[in-house]
Design a protein around this nucleic acid. Structure first.
Ligand SMILES: [Mn+2]
Ligand SMILES: [Mn+2]
Ligand SMILES: [Mn+2]
Ligand SMILES: [Mn+2]
Lengths: 215, 215
DNA sequence: ATAAAAACTTAGACATATCTAACAAAAATA
DNA sequence: TATTTTTGTTAGATATGTCTAAGTTTTTAT
């Protein structure tokens, strides 16, 4: 049995693995807001359970089983988010915190039912892929808005961050998944991008354009 | 902040208070499957938090605040059960275990949304009343089927027990909330009751007739 | 190559929630 | 009333998950 707490560590290592190739104790510590000694001891525990590979002073890595278990928690998280948006009328900025709690519920039937009711959605409200029942994830290689050049066209397909502050910022500017943007101008000084969409023109900072994925 | 565990103790004391007038440490111990010394120490903790009245060797009692908090957890439980049945297609025998977990989610918006979507239901799938946002519970005085006499008519309005075994037993016999029964015969030896309903005639044991409430 | 800084681990403490063993009080029975 | 049984408490142990303080190892900078 994997505890609530252990599930959160697995998810953290999983997410960090998709950001950089090596995941350090420090990274996990920062990500979860838990001190390094605690992370070290949890890594030993997860290693003993066969969920992570751990050697002192080395980066940590999920074992295949650890990856599957992490993906299954993420599946529960994303199905929940999608269900809250699609069937309960929540905004995409409201669902992450609720899903953080419901993802730990041990009731496969609940999540399989959500999946069925929604017709097996491929992505969550933030454009992140939903792993299947076996923990397999479809990977799409999307580009960041910040990587484009002047004159390019871009469709928002995902956001890399689900904090409500950021999503409310996007809501205020009427930016959502599916919005098509034209890159009008890139400021060489701070890389802020002027974009045109839906008869509007706005300047987005690099912080924002780094968090928007699409093609 | 009331922990997951504390919430379960409050719920237990609350439920037991509605069964008998006095709630003992033993009762809570039996109800939660937790040893008596553990219950004693939790009662002290809850007393320190102002949620129960506790004195050594005396029955335990919820304070008004303890009652409200218990009722709010029960509200979350029952709204969840109702939502699972009404909006996710689960049977009344499947929802209790899932609700036992979701009732601990800290997200008032989630439960208020369920409540809204369902149009503020008064009872859960087992006929138990759903407390309002302030923890107030409508009380209906229903009779047990076991209290009736031969020739009486009875409409099932609630069950006192949500174990899947019991509910599957009722499902098999096509007994559900709203079913109208005629009491045909009461066996004086073991108080089993012969009932007629929907062109059927069945014998229900005292164990069963004690768990069916109605009027 | 050495010193300094950063990352990591070990050791030990603490909070929560549980248990068993032993004892004490209250209730039931003789 | 005296004894036995039941119920409840105290004391101390254990498991999980967290922390701080103090060292180690590795990496970076001088
Ligand atoms: Mn999320
Ligand atoms: Mn979580
Ligand atoms: Mn998401
Ligand atoms: Mn229930």
């Amino acid at each position: 049995m994997i505890s609530f707490t252990e599930e959160n560590y697995l998810k953290s290592v999983f997410h960090l693995s998709n950001v950089s190739s090596e995941v350090s104790v420090k990274d996990v510590s920062a990500d979860l807001g838990i001190k390094m000694p605690t992370v070290t001891s949890m890594m030993k525990k997860l290693a003993a359970k066969g969920l992570v590979e751990y050697q002192s002073y080395k980066p940590v890595k999920l074992t295949p089983r650890g990856q599957t278990e992490a993906a299954l928690v993420i599946r529960k998280h994303r199905l929940t988010e999608m269900f809250l948006v699609e069937h309960m009328g929540f905004g995409w900025e409201e669902v992450h915190e609720i899903a953080e709690q419901i993802e730990h519920v041990k009731a496969p039937a609940l999540f399989n039912r959500m999946d069925e009711i929604m017709g097996h959605p491929k992505v969550d409200p933030h454009g992140s892929p939903i792993p299947d029942r076996h923990g397999k994830i479809m990977s799409r290689k999307l580009r960041k808005l910040s990587e484009l050049s002047e004159g390019d066209t871009f469709t928002i397909e995902a956001v890399t961050n689900s904090e409500d502050d950021f999503l409310n910022y996007l809501n205020q500017r009427d930016l959502s998944l599916g919005t098509v943007l034209q890159v009008v101008f890139i400021e060489p000084f701070d890389f802020s991008i002027t974009v045109r969409y839906k008869d509007k023109e706005t300047i987005l900072s690099k912080t924002v354009s780094d968090r928007l994925l699409g093609e």
